[in-house]
Design a protein around this nucleic acid. Sequence first.
DNA 1: TTTTATTGTTAGGTAAATCTAAAAATAATT
DNA 2: AATTATTTTTAGATTTACCTAACAATAAAA
Lengths: 221, 221
Amino acid sequence: MSTTSYSEENYLKVIYHLSQKSSGAVQTNTIAENIGTKPASVTDMLKKLADKRLIDYVKYQGVSLTEKGQLTAIGIVRKHRLWEVFLVDKLKLKWDEVHEIAEELEHINSDLLVERLDEYLGRPKTDPHGDSIPDKDGKFHAVNLTKLNELSAGNTGMIVGVSEHSSAYLKHLEKLGLTLGKEIQVVEVVEFDGSVELILEDKKVNISRDVAKHILVNEEF
Amino acid sequence: MSTTSYSEENYLKVIYHLSQKSSGAVQTNTIAENIGTKPASVTDMLKKLADKRLIDYVKYQGVSLTEKGQLTAIGIVRKHRLWEVFLVDKLKLKWDEVHEIAEELEHINSDLLVERLDEYLGRPKTDPHGDSIPDKDGKFHAVNLTKLNELSAGNTGMIVGVSEHSSAYLKHLEKLGLTLGKEIQVVEVVEFDGSVELILEDKKVNISRDVAKHILVNEEF
DNA sequence: TTTTATTGTTAGGTAAATCTAAAAATAATT
DNA sequence: AATTATTTTTAGATTTACCTAACAATAAAA
């Protein structure tokens, strides 16, 4: 069983995430942008990954992961998210400080390590951003999430995730106090601009539609 | 401030350890053996490290670390040992399972991460093998250790470290019950072969001189 | 349906870290 | 001191992942 390099793993991970976002084959240029490299380099790597049967690649037609490639990618996602839980829960790093570090930790390959880490963290089902953590076999457990801007006045819920991970966004949420696990109640969804007025810990908070739509809540009623 | 690559860090670390072992300049061949590479490759890297002012290098005369190189190396040692503490204390891995994993973890560069890890672990002074963990500024705290084979009959002490880290050796100690923190009392040091008879948890244990000399104890009386 | 724009690939090159084989410097032995 | 052995360096290749520039395929627009 040939092993995957740091670089190959990065490609697989990016292809995996892009496949999730929009269905259909993933394009060369899109991969290049996301990896921070040039299209020509991507083509080189795609050939290599295809040789290893990690992706299905047809010239000019984009790529998709094979079963093997997908399992590898999910393994990396699993490690990334477990490490994020560790960094936030145990080391008390903030939301927006963990991503880069987890990008490095995710490439450490030791089944024993991952298993013990998972156990130590209490086999978490989601990471600090609310993203689902796949199990050892690459299976995700369904979670039902609603976007905050889709709630109606009076509804309450708990913040369980975000669908936007930029540092700027996370810092903004932090400042507003809209962090994971917080209970909120919607006071009003303004029709004019889609902004949302809500109650958070007995205080009124106003957020724009753009901010609201990336907050995922577990609707309660 | 130019950054150091994974590979450069490995060289610095090995040079550091070899400098500790035997004083004087470190030889090209020795480095090659310890890194698992060929002398020619070492020469190439030495030139590079010298250009970066991380080592003092004179052709055919071996190398030594500069102040800058030493600080970098100690930083890596610090990370390695902190991670080993994490792996053993928190994730419950065994002595002989942690080294390889820590070899990878030690290359993750984030001051914030290291600081929080140190704090989380309770600012440990030694790693699971009893090796001293340097502080943030690269300072080691003196510990007074005696080799087990240098104790006399009747002496007691606590095992605080080992000076041999091979998996075979560690597994052997594990089997004998001679693990970190254990109290032992010397019954006799056999003059003929230097083997040591000792009492460990009310049981008599016999170990060869070769095994004894790598066990470090905190002599009590 | 041509033309234009976009997207993707090839060809040829670079830098990092490695290698082998041959040559040079140093050390050890006779 | 001369010879032999060891150690170290150079020279030239190789591999990986990247690059630019030129070309080819596909998609969009006129």
